[in-house]
């Protein structure tokens, strides 16, 4: 019960901070810019996708539709949304320390683990809101603006056309996996937050880890091959696998397990660190 009340408190704290709306505002603005750009010059983007085949084949039907726009938006923003998430979640513990409210928080009739868990649940809800907002803008607004239709996906093996009737569950599952990836980032920044005394450190550290791991992941050097499958950044794009045919069930499960394992380990580290922390501020 105390955990629930504290979680409500944490959500209220998030809701009253301006920085919480920076993420949602930036996300909205970015998506609106992409929608505007696609409305203005989306056909040239399509030409870029189908260019390899245009000499021999003609593509008929509504290629530039809401489903394609949603896919493009998800692909573009999944790299940047973690920064917007960590802006809030990286402040959850360190912000209390920086503002000197952590001592008062620790005097409440709730265990230190309870404090961490309530902040983690609040971070999870914030991440969920961001993911749902991303899904709403990219799917519903894009479909309202561009209509609906089959999805054309470009990957290294060529083009895949997925029928419209087969897309709703794919987008739903893709958003769930994208949420898992963002939840991992939120938990990572919360873990950094437990070690820091101000909120800049956790935010910068989270982004540094993402950039570092992404670079390692893209380096085509065999020395990193052994660790690549276990880095969470490798699995942050797992949502894209949902749009493959045949649908790689085992690979997606592997990604889900690794992301959930990261969340569990990082939450464990946060709990241990916060329970052992000397609160002196």
């Amino acid at each position: 019960m105390m955990l629930w009340k504290n979680t409500i408190n944490e959500l209220l704290k998030i809701a009253t901070k301006i920085r919480s709306y920076i993420g949602i505002g930036a996300l909205t603005l970015l998506i609106l810019i992409v929608l505007f750009a696609m409305k203005a010059d989306g056909k040239s983007y399509i030409g870029f996708v189908t260019a390899s085949f245009e000499q021999t084949l003609s593509f008929n039907g509504k290629i530039l539709n809401g489903n394609l726009i949603a896919f493009i938006i998800m692909q573009m923003l999944i790299v940047h949304v973690p920064l917007l998430i960590s802006l809030v979640t990286g402040d959850l513990l360190s912000g209390e320390e920086a503002s000197g409210t952590i001592r008062m928080l620790a005097t409440k009739p709730i265990s230190r683990s309870g404090i961490v868990l309530s902040k983690w649940i609040a971070a999870t809800i914030y991440t969920l809101i961001m993911t749902v907002w991303l899904g709403f803008l990219s799917l519903f607004v894009a479909k309202w603006m561009f209509g609906t239709g089959d999805l054309i996906v470009l990957n290294s093996n060529g083009l895949l056309i997925i029928p419209e009737a087969d897309l709703a569950w794919r987008f739903g599952l893709a958003l769930i996996i994208a949420f898992l990836a963002l939840w991992t980032v939120a938990t990572l920044s919360l873990a950094f937050s437990a070690f820091a005394k101000n909120s800049v450190g956790p935010i910068v550290s989270t982004m540094s880890v993402i950039i570092l791991f992404t670079i390692i992941g893209t380096l085509d050097v065999s020395v990193f091959d052994a660790i690549k499958p276990y880095m969470f950044t490798t699995h942050m794009a797992a949502w894209r696998s949902v749009f493959e045919d045949p649908y790689p069930t085992s690979a997606i499960w592997e990604s889900v397990i690794i992301l959930v394992a990261h969340i569990a380990v990082l939450l464990g580290i946060t709990l241990i660190r916060f329970n052992k922390k000397d609160i002196t501020s």
Partner: peptide
């Protein structure tokens, strides 16, 4: 003709 993937468009990192 042989398919040339525009790398900036295709980003199937998992592949």
């Amino acid at each position: 003709k042989k398919f040339k993937m525009p790398k900036s468009v295709a980003s199937d990192i998992r592949n």
